[in-house]
Design a protein around this nucleic acid. Sequence first.
DNA 1: TCACGGAATATTTTT
DNA 2: TATTCCGTGA
Length: 647
Amino acid sequence: MSPKPKHIDYKKELNSAQLEAVMFDDGPLLVIAGAGSGKTRTLTYRVARLVEAGVPPAAILLLTFTRKASAEMLTRACRLLDDRCGKVSGGTFHSFANAILRRYAAECGFGSGFSIMDRADAESLIGMVKKELGFSAKKRAFPRNQTLANIFSRGVNKGLSVDEVVFNDYPHFASAADDLTTLFNLYSERKLQLNFLDYDDLLVYLYRLLRDRSDIRQNLSATYRYIMVDEYQDTNHLQAEILYHLADRNHNVMAVGDDSQSIYAFRGANFKNIIDFPRIFPGTTIIGLEENYRSVQPILSLTNAVIDRAAEKYEKKLFTRRKGGTRPCLVDTVSENNQSRYVVDKIQEIAVTGVPLNQIAVLFRASFHSFDLEIELSREQMPYVKVGGFKFMESAHIKDLLAHMRVVQNPYDRINWYRLLLLLEKIGPKSAHDIYEAVSAEHAGTAGILTAVSGRKRPVGLERLAELYAAIDARPMSVAEMGETVLAYYLPILKRKYDDHPKRQKDLEQLLTIMIRYDELEDFLSDMALEPPSASVEGYLSTDGSDDDRLVLSTIHSAKGLEWHTVFIIWAVDGRFPSVRALDNTAELEEELRLMYVAATRARDNLFITYPSQVFDRGAGLYFGRPSRFVDRLPQEVIESSSVSPW
DNA sequence: TCACGGAATATTTTT
DNA sequence: TATTCCGTGA
């Protein structure tokens, strides 16, 4: 759009540490960026600076934690400089791997039309393999599918064998360790046969490709001359290796992160990657960003006190020039419902002073912690959007609809064939199996269903299914059109299966509006697996995090990198946060502490931490009493404690 | 071969 | 506690 690039006055717009990072030329660079220290700003300016200096945008790779984050940075860089910044390659490690692996699929031993399995797909394939091997329970304790998927994934992400994971983390299954390894190997084999990649495979195969094929490594590392990685503290060993190989040629890697904000260890992330970075890339320059631009001093004093309790961290003291502000509050609300009402009251109070609702957030450790609050919000008719937690993509009706489209893209997708066939009346596992075998024997894509079942007596359901695929096969359709056709077919099934079908139907219609944005079925399906919509508005699937003026409810994990005027952290009770399961494990406890730190550092002006002190826990059957140990027993100067009774 | 009901079991966070 | 898994009866 803009004909001549704008002049950017870097010196004026950045502080000295940021400026140093932005102006840094070649070689490895590690930026330790404290919370709210202008990390995004620094990355954005550096993209603009490189482009301004004449680096071709396609030679810059920006790897971030979500694709939304990279899109936003690039948009800002465009505003700063010009549209060239939009051509910078950006995305998550997973989406980047997806793109590269489609190009080099043949070299990796699978077809370029591979499907990405989400968690549920992986679990059901594991289930099939388990059955095939005859490992189903009965004789002795054997992990269920979900647990198996956890074990396998943990091993891959931490670089451990199945055996090691079992003995370390699942000792009660030690007697089955050999069978688990057998199962894992067959599972891996099946994935290749079916042309499936799970999340971990995306990283694994990209890593192997870069490691083993020096020609491809040379090629890619010549293409991406400047690489920037955000949230480096949340990368795992595979991602670190990938980065290492990608930078093989130029060593122009800029990693940005904060070890105090590492909250993804459960996924194999290792914040020690940050500490190891200078060793892996000799000659690394390290820059620390310590000036906080986000929070008022009283909030910063609290967050500094919280992170002070961490055993292991880079010493850093954040400071701010923002004056004024009030001390954060720690509020005992006694009961859960009273906590909800307290939060709603406070929000109304603050909103009256002119703070827009979308500048207020309620954060919590686990998704279900907000259930009671959501009821209260509906009662008060306060609009909100909920981020994170419950996955729409994992809800049955969405998966049902997508299953019909996924077999179009990959007709050998046994998992989704089974899924959609089992929806039909009179068709159980056996029939589904037979039909799948017949269809895939036809080698005619989904159209195979027409001929494959022609001989047998067809239940009405199967008849309709054949008609559906005949219609889809008849002429080329856009993604959205196909979705509409499938939905029309699926609606009767939906109504039969669920008594809450009106709500579910709305979700499906929302999904159709998402499809409109896509030209290619493959892109749509990959995106739904790699970056599914995670926000919901009043319990319904939301198309995007629109600019509506809505209160934000979010898990702390999903709140990473964001900020609000006012933040509430609810359920800060020992036993919930930190959760009981973390209590006997130092490493996990440390991670929970960092989680509290991340939550508290989201606030600019107001911070409220609430906890119900009298709650009966169904599982353990005990009364929680103490506030979270992360904020308990802090000096009065740092936090103001109070209590509100229910009446 | 399917559908239902009883028993076991894991229990957060996400690409 | 809610879900999921498995075995049994129809």
